[in-house]
Design a protein around this nucleic acid. Structure first.
Lengths: 107, 107
DNA sequence: GTCACCTGTCAGTCTCGTCTTACAGGTGAT
DNA sequence: ATCACCTGTAAGACGAGACTGACAGGTGAC
């Protein structure tokens, strides 16, 4: 997930979604792309990454005139980033990786 | 800085430095590389990045037998990562970028 | 001298992620 | 039919970053 946040464009996307939600307005993908100055395919890719990390959620809606519009909204998230937390997370990941090897090993 | 943390190997390095410090022991670069299973040049690169982000600090010492040893220690850091913080940071960055263009422009 | 340690850096490779271009499909308005 | 919107995906260019191997230099022990 830190990988998802570790990129300037993605931070800009989060910021834009945040301020939009703050204004009470929503933006579909194309509109968002125009505001951020990104191409749509590129924005799609970033949104996929953010969605995979659970930071945003998108759903397709039909507007009044019948056009399909995909709206994205920000998911509430908060995590504290310090050395201790990182150490715990890494240790946990190492354990589960070992488990996977132990239990479901090929040999 | 999120860029520095947004990589698995770097998280492992931080975790290793943290647990080492917790044990009261220190590790020089070569020792660290062996523990993590990384080549020294690679570890150097990651440590540079972490040092540039202010997460670690390294200093060269002379051991009893006169050998040069470079020790790295973890700097205390903690940051809360949520949408609001990100939005503020992005806004601030955009401002300072505009300032830079306004003030120090070439033309 | 040779070996086992250490630091520090450079040149090159190779993978991954970013980003653009282009396509295919759907709707309503003119 | 043509235009202006929208979604969604695939192919390829491109560059940054990760990673390896080799090198130069220093120390103490045998």
């Amino acid at each position: 997930m830190l990988g998802a946040v570790g990129h300037a464009q993605r931070l800009r996307i989060i910021a834009e979604l945040y301020t939009s939600a703050r204004d009470g307005s929503r933006a579909h993908v194309s509109e968002l792309a125009r505001r951020l100055g990104l191409s749509r395919p590129l924005l799609y890719m970033h949104l996929e990454r953010l969605e995979a990390a659970g930071l945003v959620a998108g759903h397709l809606e039909l507007s009044e005139d019948g056009k399909a519009m995909k709206y994205f909204e920000l998911m509430p998230f908060a995590l504290t980033l310090d050395a201790e937390t990182i150490a715990e997370t890494v240790a946990r990941d190492a354990e589960s990786a070992t488990d996977a090897n132990t239990k479901g090993g090929i040999g």
